[in-house]
């Protein structure tokens, strides 16, 4: 019964699940159609709230039509509406009408990571003293493993997604968009510091390095992977960015743990 009801909510044929009755004898199909419309429009509104830049790039009318297709294909699996849209980026990749906008899927992924970051758990950055303690044991550094903030995500894109996103923020102006080469590859570091979610544009080597750390690679191994990806990888600048973002919340070396 509940599966029939859920299927009928997203059906396009206007049908009504079997067994529905109305208290005043009006047609159940009509009443159900009102409910169906509210459900679908509510989910489209949710996607519009969560993906404002994606919507700005294709226009409201197109976005809502695309979102309607997504709602039918991938209805929410959780009652938490704030996290609806997990698969929206992948859906956009397969959505033929936007094939001319190859950056759109990654832009939606970036917007979704910002929401995940907003709702991620809190964690305190390592103190200067703790960092000093790690640094004091130089020989153990290559095997050090980093615990990064739960709100930290890396997105490597073949398109200029961070610049595109930034150009659509309130503090930006149209000039940023005018000269933008969308085919320039960019990677994003998303991280929340207290209540503010930030998105940084990072070099490909830095993205590779941070992604390796999140997979629990040792510092030495992560640096080697990053250098293999990008000979210009700048370790000091990347670590400084992580420190500034408050993203390093623990470091474990074979001899000690700082957290």
């Amino acid at each position: 019964m509940s599966a029939d009801f859920a299927d009928a909510l997203l059906a396009t044929d206007g049908g009504c699940p079997p067994g529905l009755t109305t208290w005043n004898g009006s047609a159940p199909e009509k009443r159900f159609a009102v409910y169906r419309n509210n459900v679908v429009v509510g989910l489209i509104d949710a996607l519009a709230d969560s993906f404002p830049v994606t919507q700005a790039l294709v226009g409201e009318e197109f976005f809502r039509a695309m979102a309607r297709e997504f709602v039918r294909a991938e209805p929410p699996r959780s009652p938490v509406l704030a996290l609806y849209g997990d698969g929206f980026g992948d859906f956009i990749d397969r959505f033929a009408p936007v094939a001319a906008l190859p950056y759109l899927a990654d832009l939606a992924r970036l917007e979704y990571l910002r929401i995940l970051a907003f709702h991620a758990a809190d964690a305190s950055p390592l103190t200067q003293e703790a960092l000093g303690g790690v640094l004091a044991d130089e020989a153990a550094l290559p095997l050090a493993r980093f615990a990064l903030h739960p709100s930290l995500f890396v997105l490597a894109s073949a398109h200029a997604v961070v610049s595109l996103w930034a150009a659509h923020q309130a503090e930006s102006d149209a000039r940023q968009l005018a000269g933008l080469d969308t085919t320039r590859a960019e990677s994003a570091l998303v991280c929340r510091r207290e209540l503010a979610v930030e998105a940084f544009r990072i070099a490909p080597g830095a993205a590779c390095f941070i992604a390796a750390l999140t997979r629990d690679a040792s510092l030495g191994a992560a640096v080697e992977q990053a250098l293999a990806r990008d000979a210009d990888f700048d370790l000091a600048a990347t670590l400084a960015l992580l420190l500034r973002a408050g993203a390093i919340v623990g470091i474990t070396t074979p001899r000690r743990t700082q957290a």
């Binding site: 790690v134 130089e138 550094l141 290559p142 030495g220 370790l235 670590l239 400084a240 420190l243």
Partner: peptide
Amino acid sequence: TVSAASLALAFGAAM
């Protein structure tokens, strides 16, 4: 390819 000393140098610079 990456020595402990160079990691320490970069770490200190980052701080």
